[in-house]
């Protein structure tokens, strides 16, 4: 990277593959601007696996579509930057961004049945994505077959000539992983890669992903609502709620010592944590607030059981409470007098 860029970046970020700072994204809707992401900051270290948890509509998908810059046409970036290896992805030209896709940043999508083009062979699709390489077609095929073998698909040469419909869902997701890792990217974004699969397959795929990550040495941004998988696979976890990061830290800190009431409630609702037989599974009462017409104060206050007066008037700032463990909640603030939302203003660049 040019020195010019380097000087603008804080020294601590050089270890990170991805740094998202103060990212806010709106969607233009007929009802008004929907504030899908608000002042989101997070980072992914080299060779780290970071998980994002949160319920549907919390902004996970918006976040990853912004990283790979494949946003919906009605999405607008309000503020922030996405630094990938110290260059701001949001400032790149489309052509520069396209050069990164599939090579430096690649993705595995949620639904393996929808991931591949149904009328082209797997081999053709795996060869096509290597179009930037000046290799012979035979060599590209060989590399593709090698990747398929690596993700555990038997007889890969023959299977390259088959079409997606001839593979099961689990196989297709393995193929998707093979395709995503073929160019040995620095960052793999996995968007709920195991949600559409059954539990046995999920374990197999997670295991394989872990091995491959170790081998290739890439970082992974792993989106899931399966807390067990996050705990198993990830080093760090980011908890999102209604477009905000409300807690992040190491898996150990966040899962064993949740600081935000939402995280605590989420953990309580995880079926994996329930030891005793119950008739009804626990839920978090209430609904996610309307992101077009945001309530004042804390975004979670309507559903929070521990809220107090200040939660309704003032948005809690995201602050570190213990090393890398950070949270946006008034309950954790020891010094209640002067801490306001200063931290949010610091990051705004535009």
């Amino acid at each position: 990277m040019p020195d010019l860029l380097q000087s603008e970046v804080l020294p601590e970020t050089s270890d990170n593959v991805l740094d998202i700072r103060d990212l806010s994204i709106n969607y233009g809707t007929p009802r008004g601007e929907l504030q899908a992401l608000r002042h989101v900051s997070m980072s992914i270290g080299k060779k780290k696996i970071v998980g994002i948890v949160g319920e549907s509509g919390c902004g996970k998908s918006t976040l990853i579509s912004a990283i790979i810059r494949l946003m919906a046409s009605n999405a607008t970036v309000q503020s922030g930057e996405i630094l990938f290896k110290d260059q701001d992805l949001l400032g790149l030209k489309e052509k520069q961004m396209r050069a990164l896709r599939g090579i430096d940043i690649s993705m595995v999508f949620q639904d393996p049945m929808q991931t591949h083009n149904p009328v082209l062979t797997i081999g053709r699709q795996m060869v096509d994505i290597q179009y930037r390489d000046k290799l012979s077609k035979a060599n590209k095929k060989k590399r593709a077959a090698g990747m398929l073998a690596l993700v555990g698909i038997p007889d890969p040469e023959a299977r390259l000539n088959q079409y997606p419909y001839e593979f099961s869902g689990g196989m297709r997701q393995r193929i998707a992983i093979a395709m995503a890792l073929m160019a040995k990217p620095d960052l793999l974004i996995a968007d709920e890669p195991t949600t559409a699969l059954d539990a046995t397959l999920e374990v197999q795929i997670i295991k394989r992903l872990e091995e491959l990550q170790d081998e290739i040495g890439c970082s992974i941004l792993f989106i899931s609502h399966h807390l067990g998988v996050i705990a198993e696979l990830c080093d760090e976890v980011v908890v999102m709620y209604a477009g905000e990061v409300i807690e992040q830290g190491s898996v150990r800190d966040v899962f064993h010592n949740p600081a935000h009431p939402y995280t605590a409630a989420l953990l309580k609702c995880d079926p994996g944590h329930i030891k005793e037989k119950t008739r009804n599974l626990p839920t978090i009462p209430g609904e996610v607030p309307d992101l077009v017409d945001l309530p004042s104060g804390c975004i979670y206050q309507q559903r929070c059981t521990k809220g107090f007066a200040r939660c309704q008037s003032e948005r809690p700032a995201f602050r570190q409470i213990n090393g890398s463990h950070g949270v946006a909640c008034h309950l954790t603030e020891t010094d209640l007098s002067k801490e306001t939302s200063q931290q949010n203003e610091e990051g705004i660049t535009s």
Partner: peptide
């Protein structure tokens, strides 16, 4: 559809995606 998004996420040229995929 999802497969077009996949093709885009691998950086295939848009013209290629439109006319070939």
């Amino acid at each position: 559809e999802g497969h077009v998004r996949t093709a885009r996420s691998f950086g295939l040229p848009e013209r290629w995606i439109t006319y070939s995929y």
